[in-house]
């Protein structure tokens, strides 16, 4: 058993009267690709927003790399190695593709403020080289100077992942990365995920595309109405009657 990188205990988030995430326990091992599935409104994205610090938990704890990070803010968590993408792509649209990746490297690069004030000195050339290398790896090298918003939808998704990986994270959280992708793009994404997993990166994958999840993940948790209703290997989950009911509804409704 790999050591646990992320441990979530009794995590709870309420919005008014709605309990979006209800006492969820999860643990994700180092190097694991962990799938998170569930019907719309099950609380998947809320759970991710709690882990990445965009929401404050109302109860429960989050431990990352052995320390309590429950109350840390997004930028502090990014610094500790949690990188994420968003369900509705959040690129810096008016900036270039290269600048987006440079910003992804923010936590890895030293401040060049003082250096930048020295006349005629080139600024940030090392970071530029590193960022170009990342773009090349993602097949976006030729579009480095395009504005992020000028990319095709699939390329925007890829750029967002490239930006997240630029920070050399310990945990990568992907919120529906295949949403809106066509079949070819989805297959390419699946290949990329496998490649990252082989490299030893820990990944949490939220996805509706069940084939993608079952193909890529070693372990899968199922959320419904804010509660974890099942967890196990892909085959186990697919066979689970509770999960089938959550997705398809019970026979009585028909």
């Amino acid at each position: 058993m790999s050591p646990e990188l992320l441990q979530i205990g009794a995590l709870t988030k309420r919005f008014g009267g709605v309990v979006a995430v209800n006492a969820v326990d999860l643990s994700v091992g180092e190097g694991q690709v962990f799938g998170l599935i569930g019907p719309n409104g099950a609380g998947k994205t809320t759970l991710i927003n709690l882990i990445s610090g965009h929401f404050r938990a109302d109860g429960g704890t989050i431990r990352f790399g052995g320390t309590d990070v429950t109350r840390l803010r997004p930028h502090e968590l990014a610094k500790r190695g949690i990188a994420r993408t968003f369900q509705s792509i959040r690129l810096f649209k008016g900036l270039t593709v290269l600048e987006n990746v440079l910003l992804g490297r923010y936590v890895r690069s030293r401040s060049d403020v003082l250096a930048s004030l020295v006349p005629f000195r080139a600024v940030g050339s090392i970071e530029r080289d590193a960022s170009r290398a990342i773009l090349d790896r993602f097949g976006l090298g030729a579009r480095a100077d395009a504005l992020a918003a000028e990319l095709s939808y699939g390329d925007q998704r890829r750029l967002e992942i490239a930006r997240a990986l630029a920070s050399e994270p310990r945990l990568l959280i992907l919120d529906e990365p295949a949403a809106g992708m066509n079949a070819t793009e989805s297959v390419a994404l699946s290949g990329m995920l496998r490649e990252l997993a082989v490299g030893g990166l820990t990944i949490i994958l939220i996805e509706h595309d069940v084939r993608l999840v079952m193909g890529a993940c070693e372990r899968v948790a199922v959320l419904n109405f804010g509660r974890k209703i099942a967890e196990g290997g892909p085959a186990e989950i697919q066979a689970d009657p509770v999960v089938r009911e959550a997705y398809l509804g019970s026979g009585d409704d028909a």
Partner: peptide, 27 residues
């Protein structure tokens, strides 16, 4: 010069999308 430094880039990121900027580790 600040504009083309890492600070200027962080300012641009905040202008474009604060949530995404924070996710990159920008305070």
């Amino acid at each position: 010069r600040l504009r083309i430094s890492s600070v200027g880039r962080a300012w641009s990121a905040i202008r474009e999308d604060e949530v995404a900027a924070a996710s990159q580790g920008i305070p």
